[in-house]
Amino acid sequence: MSAPSAEKVKVVKQLARPEIVFAAARRKGTSLLYFGGSDFRVHAVDLGRDRPEARELGAHSSYVTGLAVAGGSLVSGGYDGRLNWWDLSSGSQIRSLEAHAKWIRRIAASPDGRLIASVADDMVCRLWDAETGALRSELRGHEEMTPHHFPSMLYACAFSEDGQHLATGDKVGRVNLWSVEDGCSVARLETPTFYTWDPVQRRHSIGGIRALAFSPDGSRLAIGGIGQIGNIDHLDSKPRIEVFDWRAGRRIGEAQGEGRGMVEHLVFHPRGEWLMGAGGYSDGLLLFCESDGTKALAQAKMPMYVHDMVLNDDLSGAVAVGHHKIAAVNWSA
């Protein structure tokens, strides 16, 4: 297997943004990037141009934290609990749904583009018909409160490549795996290292599962976040990835990056060459691991804390979005 070395990761384009960018999506085969963030807005920008200029599609009434392209639509989700559909050709809003009672943390489109999954702090994952916006199912399996009497949070979700399974991960480190077809729970994993709580030293919790990704063959699940935190005020722990054989309920690998940081996004190389986590601390980071998670291979700095990322179609690099910045990186030169 081969992962790019840290030196190979080059920033090829940067776009400063006034807002913090939390979510990104790209329509396959184009250089058109959709992004949303702390200014509550959804924008589109063509990164193929020399001087890319962002165009606003519309707005939520709070942070925009999830974007997915499904069929001919872009779907956005935000802390206002709403899911908005935008027409990709005209850019106009198609519909807006009150999807969750609390913050939507992430949305994902099924590989065939027919379903949208949304996870929110109401601790429910909802599956929506990407075409009609109809609610297809509600997946409930995450506790609303942490064991320490505080509201929990449901941060992450991901579809398997074949679209049959969906994983959701929460603050206290629980992962639920669902059969998309019937909405039944098919497995449950516990990853307590991602959740920090210490009744003596830290009477306040932090961490949680921030990123999920299925391996291309669907057998493994990668889970990302931060390790046990020494000083939770400063996110004082290493970026962390665990990989499970989820059917067996067995962890097969764990990898940690250098320095401090959180993994916010995970992606498997389609041919299994690597598994990559992106995130950050005060700077951003890319962490390449063995695809079974047994070893960290390389870690590169990013020009900003990365909240979300879209891989280039040819796997030569990616477009990352994050703290006041959009950055295109390349690692295959």
Binding site: F150, P151, R202, R203, H204, S205, I206, I232, D233, H234
Partner: peptide
């Protein structure tokens, strides 16, 4: 009541602690 020193993840911290 300590642990308000939210240099990281201010909103998660306050979402947990302000309701308390």
């Amino acid at each position: 009541r300590a642990w308000w020193d939210s240099h990281g993840q201010n909103f998660e911290t306050h979402q947990e602690m302000v309701p308390e």
